[in-house]
C-alpha cells in the first residue's frame, strides 16, 4: 500500500501559485495496475515523483509499505558520464542486490550488447529506456512507477516490457502508469485515478476512469 496522509503540493510560478494537489488522504493498492489520467500540466508526473520520493510534498506524508521503484521512463536517473554497466552496479549497490546478477539480467533484458560499456550520454532515448527498465526489472520491486509521458520506445521493446510486467503482475507486483497512450493504459492497468483541479479522483474500474476523464 501507498498511504497518502493529508498530502498537499503546489508550485509557485511567476504567474502565481498552482495547486497540484489539495490535501488528500487515500491508500493506493500496490498489487494492482493503476493508471493516472490527467491532462498536460495537471501534475501527473509530479504526483509520480512524489510517490517515488524524488520530490517532497509541501504538507502531509506519503508512506510506502512495499518496495517502490524510481520513476521509470526515457529520461532521468542515470549518470550520463558512466556506462550502462557502471550505472547498473551503482543501483545494485544502493538497493542491496547482487551486482553481477543484476548486470547479467540487464544484459539479457535490455540487449544493449557492446553499448553496456559505453557512456549513457551516447545512448538514444530508446536505449536509455531499455537500460532503465532493465535495471528496475532486475530488482524485484513490489510496485513499479512508469512515466510514459515522454515514451518513444520501439515496438519490440514495448512488447518485451509488457510481457515482463505481465509476469510481475502474476507475482502480485503492481504498477502505476502515467500515460497518454490509451493502448498501454489498457494493457497494463485495471484501476484508474483522474488528477484534475488539484484533486485525485480514484475509480475501481479503469473504463469508468477513462470515460470520466474524457466525458466528465
Amino acid at each position: 500500500m501507498i498511504h497518502f496522509i493529508e498530502v498537499a503540493k503546489q508550485y509557485s510560478t511567476w504567474a502565481g501559485d498552482r495547486v497540484i494537489l489539495f490535501p488528500t488522504s487515500l491508500s493506493i493498492p500496490t498489487n494492482r495496475g493503476v493508471a493516472v489520467l490527467g491532462r498536460n500540466g495537471s501534475g501527473k508526473s509530479t504526483l509520480l515523483r512524489m510517490i517515488a520520493g524524488v520530490e517532497t510534498p509541501d504538507h502531509g506524508r506519503i508512506i510506502r509499505t512495499v518496495s517502490v521503484s524510481w520513476p521509470l521512463g526515457f529520461s532521468g536517473g542515470m549518470s550520463v558520464h558512466m556506462t550502462g554497466r557502471q550505472n547498473a552496479r551503482f543501483i545494485a549497490r544502493i538497493n542491496h542486490v547482487d551486482e553481477d546478477d543484476l548486470i547479467a539480467f540487464v544484459e539479457d533484458f535490455s540487449e544493449l550488447g557492446p553499448y553496456m560499456d559505453e557512456p549513457v550520454a551516447t545512448y538514444s532515448s530508446g536505449m536509455f529506456g531499455r537500460l532503465s527498465f532493465g535495471i528496475s526489472l532486475g530488482i524485484d520491486f513490489d510496485f513499479y512507477l512508469i512515466d510514459e509521458g515522454t515514451s518513444t520506445g520501439d515496438q519490440w521493446f514495448q512488447e518485451k516490457c509488457a510481457q515482463a510486467f505481465a509476469e510481475r503482475r502474476r507475482k502480485s507486483s503492481g504498477l502505476l502508469l502515467v500515460s497518454h497512450n490509451a493502448q498501454s493504459v489498457e494493457q497494463y492497468c485495471d484501476i484508474g485515478m483522474v488528477l484534475y483541479r488539484g484533486h485525485l479522483v480514484p475509480f475501481t474500474d479503469l473504463d469508468e476512469a477513462v470515460r470520466f476523464y474524457v466525458h466528465g
Binding site: S25, T65, Y196, R197, V201, T204, F212, Y213, H215, G216
Partner: peptide
Amino acid sequence: DADAGLPDPQDFAVPEAFAPRLDDAAL
C-alpha cells in the same frame, strides 16, 4: 478551460478500494 466538462472533484467520495487505511499493520 482544459478541464471543461469535468464535474467538481470535491463531490466524489473515495471508493472503498482506495479508502485511507491507517490501521495498516506495516504503518
